[in-house]
């Protein structure tokens, strides 16, 4: 493991780094809150892309540059664009009526979520081992690649099989039904 904190320049100053973290956390939470309350799914996806950008910066601050890059490439670049593509293909928002947001539905959800969140935060605060902050950490791509393809080589194989199964399953589910039979789908 890379023991020396090798994050260059600015981020060695803990003060600036922590201020940036809190700013990014606030921006992420705001974007996520806006995302889950939008009526148009396209707006929701765009806000979520913004939240993912902020999350990628947070990952970089925590010394995970590769994860930050992949957060951008895979989450914001691939998955969210796939969402947008599906929304546009199904013509969800512009033509039809906007999605219904029932105000009364949020009340029990808010109560349940706040209880869960309060208990979790209490447990986190109570734990004395989580109060420290340690020193700066920066995982070099070499450490990352060694851990990924050496210690977790079997898991990488399993994940590749999983992706293959997902591709086959998505093709099977997504392919159109044969129109010739003319039978009503049950």
């Amino acid at each position: 493991m890379n023991t020396a904190p090798s994050i260059p320049g600015l981020w060695c100053h803990d003060m600036i780094g922590s201020v940036v973290f809190y700013l990014l956390a606030a921006a992420t939470l705001t974007a996520t809150l806006l995302c889950i309350t939008r009526t148009s799914p396209v707006h929701a996806v765009i806000y979520l892309v913004h939240a993912f950008f902020d999350l990628a910066l947070i990952f970089y601050l925590f010394g995970a540059p590769l994860v930050a890059a992949w957060e951008m490439i895979i989450y914001a670049g691939a998955i969210m664009v796939l969402f947008l593509f599906i929304i546009m293909m199904l013509e969800l928002s512009p033509g039809g009526k906007p999605l219904t947001v029932d105000r009364r539905r949020w009340i029990p959800v808010l109560i349940l979520s706040l209880v869960t969140l309060g208990c979790t935060v209490l447990l986190i605060i109570q734990d004395p081992s989580s109060a420290g902050s340690g020193t700066a950490y920066h995982a070099s791509p070499r450490d990352f690649g060694t851990a990924l393809f050496d210690h977790y080589a079997l898991a990488v194989q399993v994940v590749s099989f999983q992706l293959l199964f997902a591709a086959v399953g998505a093709y099977y589910v997504g392919k159109g039904e044969p129109r010739k039979r003319g039978e009503q789908p049950s």
Partner: peptide
């Protein structure tokens, strides 16, 4: 780590 772990 630049902030307390609890905050994360």
């Amino acid at each position: 780590m630049i902030v307390p772990f609890a905050h994360v």
